[in-house]
Nucleic acid binder design. Structure first.
Length: 491
RNA sequence: GCCCUCGUAGCCAAGUGGUCAAGGCAGCGGACUUUUAAUCCGAAGAUCGUGGGUUCGAAUCCCACCGGGGGCACCA
């Protein structure tokens, strides 16, 4: 593909000459009193031909322009919306230059708020100045950009011409802000733990590797903050959360970006029931704030996010799907046969827990639409979760599934250092056996557990997917400002 | 990584073997004092992603490469 940057061209400009504007003529600052939305809010019901006597100063980009000889109309866009500019030649300073503005130019305008004969709310251009010129032409003013590649690479243009883009990304910002407020209102303390990890841990995933020169040390970009956050609980902070980027060296898809944002939080003295309640309350409150309702539409289907959500053990769900009673206690050959029957690829090394999980993921997970907590995952596939109080082969772990996709993962935390060491060693053996995603033994984390981790529950929520859910978008690239792409080829 | 699919001017977009590759927007020149994607007139703008090949003839068919999208695999 070619270099698809906007065409570089700025000539003519009517009588204003070919070098206009000169960069040294552009202002260093400008007064702005109002956003376009604030003006629309303040004057909701003006009659046609009204004059308000109210003078405002607005700034943004000129998105449309309608010049008719001695009278010109413009449409100014800012981050809140659009507003018409009304420019009669008799009163507009440098009227010809105003008419010669290009679509996309940054300008500021001050003047009286009024309405036209047709009743359109406008600002009369009593004074104006250019703030920055576009020297590349803006996309088609009606069609915008349709090519996703161009949209993601030139997000700075996309945000102006694709309303959904701007709306989804603004919603993301608001969701992140609301999450912070929610957590703080429950006495959680926000912390920042390392992104460089000497031992990647806290999740099953392949990490990115980097290198520190002075220490001559390979470091890994974190795949999860989990183990550091639990060290902080050991350190005496009973409620901590981190809202930050994690990195996983995996394929890209409409639901995967190599760097994504995760909320992780830990609460001492609680078990997994506590965080199931927290999750459903958080999601419900976000839905109310962002969507105005808990009865949302996602990908064309209705979905009710109201708490409480169903809680169903994983083995029970699988049993319902395949019409046969199964559990981690089922004979391993029976589970292998069932996997085969359902077209689930398996490995010799899989125990009953892993086989059950595979069955669940391939046959059941995608069928779950309404929010549900799938609980009591096999110990074999949950190396950081605490044993289930009623069944030694299970853990007190849950995943929240919404619209057929995993939204979060949480569990009563494994506090027993000996048991944790055994689980780490089991993981390390799998890693030695060629599993790139298995965990390594983290001796310092084990030392922390030796000092005592109180009963604790932890939770991780994928923020990108949560934003997708609440903004009704089906591709993660629509909720990530600058999604990972191959570098553009430039000649 | 594998499979399918797409790539025509700054943007949108017709054209699927046959004269000099439609049209629109933006940009440029001109007309126009209440428009709403304003309208009208004029001129200009294209290595048809890149490189090979088949053919008398390729945007169109074949191969490779580059980039995108979808799916599979893996995960959140």
């Amino acid at each position: 593909m070619g270099n698809s940057a906007g065409e570089l061209r700025r000539e003519g400009r009517g009588s204003a000459g070919s070098v206009w504007p000169r960069m040294d003529e552009l202002p260093y600052s400008v007064e702005v009193t109002d956003t376009t939305a604030a003006i629309a809010d303040r004057f909701p019901n003006l009659e046609p031909g009204a004059e308000t006597g109210s003078v405002v100063a607005v700034a943004g980009r000129l998105m449309l322009r309608r010049v008719q000889g001695k009278l010109a109309f413009g449409t100014l866009a800012d981050h809140t919306g659009r507003l018409q500019l009304f420019a009669p030649s008799a009163s507009t300073p440098e009227f010809d230059a105003f008419c010669a503005l290009n679509l996309g130019d940054w300008i500021s305008v001050s003047g009286e708020v009024m309405t036209t004969r047709r009743g359109e709310l406008s600002v009369r251009v009593d004074a104006w100045q250019m703030l920055a010129a576009t020297r590349r032409s803006f996309p088609d003013k009606w069609h915008g950009i349709t090519d996703p590649d161009t949209r993601f690479r030139q997000r700075y243009v996309d945000l102006w011409v694709t309303e959904n883009s701007r709306a989804a990304l603004a919603a993301r910002s608001r969701i992140v802000s609301l999450i912070r407020r929610f957590m703080e209102s429950r006495d959680y303390m926000e912390v920042e733990t390392p992104i460089f990890h000497p031992i990647p841990g806290g999740a099953l995933a392949r990490p990115f590797v980097t290198h520190h020169n002075a220490l001559d040390l390979d470091l890994y970009l974190r795949i999860a903050p989990e183990l550091y956050l639990k060290r902080l609980v050991v350190g005496g902070f009973p409620r901590v959360f981190e809202l930050g980027r994690v990195f996983r060296n995996e394929g890209l898809s409409p639901r995967h970006n190599p760097e994504f944002t995760m909320l992780e939080c830990y609460e001492a003295y609680g078990d997994y029931e506590v965080h199931m309640a927290l999750t459903e309350q958080l999601v419900e409150s976000l839905a109310r704030e962002i969507c105005g309702t808990t009865q949302i539409t996602y990908d064309g289907r209705e979905l009710n996010l109201s708490a409480p959500w169903r809680r169903v053990p994983l083995a029970q769900l699988v049993s319902e799907t395949i019409g046969r009673e199964v559990s981690v206690h089922s004979p391993i050959d029976e589970l292998r046969t069932l996997c085969e029957e359902h077209g689930v690829p398996i490995k010799e090394s899989y125990g009953t827990g892993k086989l059950l999980l595979e069955l669940y993921e391939k046959t059941t997970e995608h069928t779950l639409w309404e929010p549900i907590f799938v609980t009591d995952y096999p110990k074999e596939v949950s190396p950081l979760s605490r044993d289930h109080r009623d069944d030694p082969l299970l853990t007190e772990r849950f995943e929240g599934i919404v619209a057929g996709r995993e939204l979060c993962n949480g569990f009563s935390e494994l506090c027993d250092p000996d048991e944790q060491r055994a689980r780490f060693e089991d993981q390390a053996a799998q890693k030695a056996g060629g599993d790139d995603e298995a965990m390594a033994v983290d001796e310092d984390y084990l030392r922390a557990l030796d000092y005592g981790l109180p009963p604790t529950v932890g939770l991780g929520i994928g923020i990108d997917r949560l934003v997708m859910l609440l903004t009704d978008t089906t591709t993660i690239r629509d909720v990530v400002l600058f999604p990972t792409l191959r570098p553009e080829v430039t000649e």
